[in-house]
Amino acid sequence: MNLSSRIYRILLLAYPSEFRREYGGQMVLVFRDGYRDEVDRNRHFAFVTYWLNTLLDLVVTATKEHSQNFGKDRQLMTNMRRDIIALLGTIAIIVAALALLNYGRSHEVSSILAVGRVLDAIVTAGIVGNLVVFLLVKFTQWNSLRIALWTFVVVHAVLVIIIAILGPQVEPQFRLGPILLAYVLSFLFWFGLHWAWRSMRQEVASS
């Protein structure tokens, strides 16, 4: 490899590493062949104009490749930020519901105890359901709202069935009606939240 090709190889550091890895070797070959042809034509200062054109090309295209990478990185960061916000929001809701429930029970606050079953359902179904939704959204290509709908339907139904089976054995005065109502409200709460989040994201994306 001649000196010019060596220098050009070093200058390729101006490109993003991914681009350099994929095309750097080919670019050096093209530079080498072009340089050799220019020198063979034996024009005065041919190598100077060849170098000037190459440097101009390098500055323009390296800037372009970096700006495209910047766009990709920004999109990745935006998606990551949205995921973190969604995750923290879900945790905050569950923690708040748990705290409210504990406070209501320890201080016997009747208004809180009246919605105690709903809070119970929100906490239990929220933890299991959101975990399943999060994993399915991350590892499949399915529609996220459809995933949320079916996951929450299944999780709520399974929890109601378990409570319906175990409830009478634990509590002789057990009544299924209020439990059913609590889980329906919990389902509406969680699915409504996912629907609102998805609508908000679509609105931001289209604006």
């Binding site: 681009f19 670019m27 093209v30 090309d57 323009v60 390296a62």
Partner: peptide, 13 residues
């Protein structure tokens, strides 16, 4: 029209 290596491989990519 003379394509530089960067223009050539940027377009190819």
């Amino acid at each position: 029209v003379r394509l530089g290596p960067g223009t050539l491989y940027g377009s190819i990519k």
